[in-house]
Design a protein around this nucleic acid. Sequence first.
DNA 1: CTGAAAGCGCTTACAG
DNA 2: CTGAAAGCGCTTACAG
Lengths: 342, 342
Amino acid sequence: METLPQTANSIREVAALAQTSVSTVSRVLNQSGYVKAEVRERIERVIAATGFVPSAVAKGLQRKQSSLVGVVIPRIDSYSISAMMAGISAVLEAAGYSLLLAHTDNQAERELKALQLFKEQRVNGVLLLAAELGEQHRQAFAMLQRPLVVLGQDASDLGLSCVLQDECAAATALTQALLERGHRRIGFIGVNARDVQVGGERKRGYQNALAAAGITPDDTLMTAGGFDFASAAQAVDLLMALPQRPTALLAATDRLAIGAISRLTELGLRVPQDVSVAGMGDIDIAAMMQPRLSTVHYDYQASGRQAAQLLLDQLQQKTATSSKLVMPFTIKMRDSARQLAP
Amino acid sequence: METLPQTANSIREVAALAQTSVSTVSRVLNQSGYVKAEVRERIERVIAATGFVPSAVAKGLQRKQSSLVGVVIPRIDSYSISAMMAGISAVLEAAGYSLLLAHTDNQAERELKALQLFKEQRVNGVLLLAAELGEQHRQAFAMLQRPLVVLGQDASDLGLSCVLQDECAAATALTQALLERGHRRIGFIGVNARDVQVGGERKRGYQNALAAAGITPDDTLMTAGGFDFASAAQAVDLLMALPQRPTALLAATDRLAIGAISRLTELGLRVPQDVSVAGMGDIDIAAMMQPRLSTVHYDYQASGRQAAQLLLDQLQQKTATSSKLVMPFTIKMRDSARQLAP
DNA sequence: CTGAAAGCGCTTACAG
DNA sequence: CTGAAAGCGCTTACAG
């Protein structure tokens, strides 16, 4: 006849209930070493009855293995970032890691604090989805002393593994597609270049395409602002007030393109009849909008998976060298950009 | 003359370097108790020189306080969920908690595993963004033994705190707005009712409005499917093939509404001239689309903040009773729904 | 096959 | 104001 215990909060209590030692309980919990079937059963019965769940905290302290990966994101409510997160979590959770999430709201200061927190929590590795990379980051990385993979920015010069999009080439290809459709005056709605990839590289790609086509660059045709709809509207107002209006607009992101189309519509201009518009990123509704948005497609989820895999490789010591992975892209010309009449 | 130590991995090493005891180092680290200024300075110098970061793992083991909150989400790449996450993380991080994230991809099985993992990690509380709540959940909640707040579903009958939208009233109000514009045959593009809030309540609200207007319900006018664009297209095909076509379509989500508009356009039908369309949720680009989408606005970020606050209250024992918070909504009639000619 | 013991890196009474 | 000691809940050689 057995008494039914309500709960057990430690391996020691389980051992007492099962009339054995903590070592043996630990063995059945970890399936390591041999345990007589009879004893094993007794222990398992106690665990089932008490609903005992071993402490990963104590285990981590001993093994110096937290099974935690820290992920730093500038903001969560962004299409590209949540898509990357989906890829990251799929790979990491499948590998037995849990995600510690830090949201920095684009403040470098909070980014550094997050890294500190991660170190306190003794995470095994860190994934940084970065919008900008500065000198402060270099210092923070040095003190981290853990495998780190950067997603979205080029960190190879810091000796770090990173995964990024082929921004410059993509922007070039997209601009060329516009040029092929007869557009010569193409406005560029960009973002601040402190974000090297989105702000810098996308603009560089646009400029390269123009240069290759023998078009002299016109600075009045290029704006730089934020990622919000208001910035897009402002850019449109600026570009459309130009004495020589652009016939096409290339926005650095799909959101900016959507904001631009909205503003153009308010101004009484039709897309694509009066102005062609293209974005970058191919957010899920880009193909569903009216007009369907021309853009460049990135596989953000795959990028997240790759970054997570790179981190796993480092965690499992499979690789010592840091690698830079540049993801491919696909141009999607849809209805928002049209062929200009000759 | 001092030697410069490279690194310190424990309070004990710091103590040795500063020629004092671990207790004293612990005191300066936690700013608890008095420490002679001279000794404090010595310790602080060692910490700065070694870049020592105390282990939250060891601290947590002792204090039985992990400063971790587990967040379970069905999927990350959804507008409403990432908006809620933004609110959650703002409140929780400000309160000194870190977020442990588990992504379940809508699989109940993974949801339960996540809860188990959270318990292993000894999280202080859990936030569950739920799409469905079943019998398995009830059991998992029982074994959790920690404060838990449910976001997005009604869990008050389980004795749990929850935050949800006023789905039924919102759907009623939106349907009424359509009725006021002269629409009598309104198609409903719904989702599976296992999701009580989005699948059940939104449909119930729609039906209530019709009943109040004295319109006999027509089952052929109501579809139920997934959240994806394909489901929306299918629903449109079905509804537009009806002998008596609806003049307006109410979709349970903005995404479905966008998918519906896309399909209607493919079929050569104009929105809103031929068919009016409304969605629910007011995703960020709803007001930017062409036509601007009529919908109901929820403050998802505020919902996340509220849920986090409710959890904090429980963590700080401020409240013992569980509460059910129903968030307000705003109807946004824009261009995608028009007044029917009399 | 099993148990006693040391130790992971902290905190916290308790003496002094 | 400071230090020795016990203990948080595990794991892991080491004996037996």
